[in-house]
Write a protein that binds this DNA or RNA. Structure first.
Length: 219
DNA sequence: TCCCCGATTAACT
DNA sequence: GTTAATCGGGGAG
């Protein structure tokens, strides 16, 4: 059990076992919903947020960085699950993924949005005083708020300054599912999962699975 | 070596 | 709704 704090705010949660990450990305992704992502700041305090939106990527997936095999950039994605893959996007932004699967498989889950919970002052400062709702709403906003950069590429999420914690909150029983955002290939693959009803998600609202006969049920 | 383009955001109109 | 900013990766020549 880990305990982290920022001022009077506090969070207690369990590190997930390595085997938990050794599954395929499309299984780990919805399980990451409602987990807590915590990052230690340089002053020793922490900032943390609850994951509310994720996307899965895999080796056979045209939209994945691993689709064309190993390169210097994507080498962390070929490492064992339970580590952070951080890449630079559009020459401006950092985006963070949790690597999944066994070593060599080339899978990861993109962290797209989170609900800020603790260490809010530092997140606000990092984001230029945006509304709290927008602090981690979007993959690059999330890394900016929590201070994740390329220097965090490859670090474990099970120890050290970046932690994924299970604080007892269950993943949603029926997460909303939909197509991934901002990609041009495999746009029809429904590998984006969102906590229903959360105000802290980004992009268009995906649909609930078969909730009212709607959703993707067609063809 | 060159060139195109991207798992985006913020600031515009 | 539209667009500029901004630069490294990776495929092609």
């Amino acid at each position: 059990l880990k305990s982290i704090a920022s001022g009077s705010a506090r969070c207690r949660g369990d590190v997930l076992p390595a085997a938990w990450y050794r599954r395929d990305s499309w299984e780990v992704a919805p399980a990451l919903l409602n987990k807590v992502l915590a990052v230690r700041r340089t002053d020793g305090g922490w900032s943390w947020a609850r994951v509310v939106e994720v996307e899965a990527y895999a080796w056979f997936d045209e939209a994945s960085h691993t689709f064309r095999g190993p390169t210097p950039r994507n080498q962390v994605m070929y490492g064992p699950g339970g580590h952070l893959y951080v890449y630079f996007s559009y020459g401006v932004h950092w985006c963070a993924n949790v690597v999944t699967g066994p070593k060599g498989s080339g899978q990861a889950v993109l962290l797209r949005a989170a609900e800020p919970l603790g260490g809010l002052a530092e997140m606000r400062a990092a984001r230029g005083g945006m509304p709290d709702r927008d602090l981690c709403r979007g993959p690059a906003r999330l890394t900016q708020a929590l201070g994740l950069t390329g220097s965090d590429n490859g670090v474990s999420v099970r120890s050290g300054g970046v932690l994924v914690l299970d604080d007892g909150a269950e993943p949603p029983a029926s997460p909303h599912v939909g197509p991934r955002v901002g990609i041009s290939r495999a746009v029809d693959v429904p590998w984006r999962w969102v906590v229903p009803g959360s105000r802290y998600t980004s992009g268009p609202r995906p649909q609930a699975p078969t909730a009212s006969g709607g959703g993707c049920a067609r063809e």
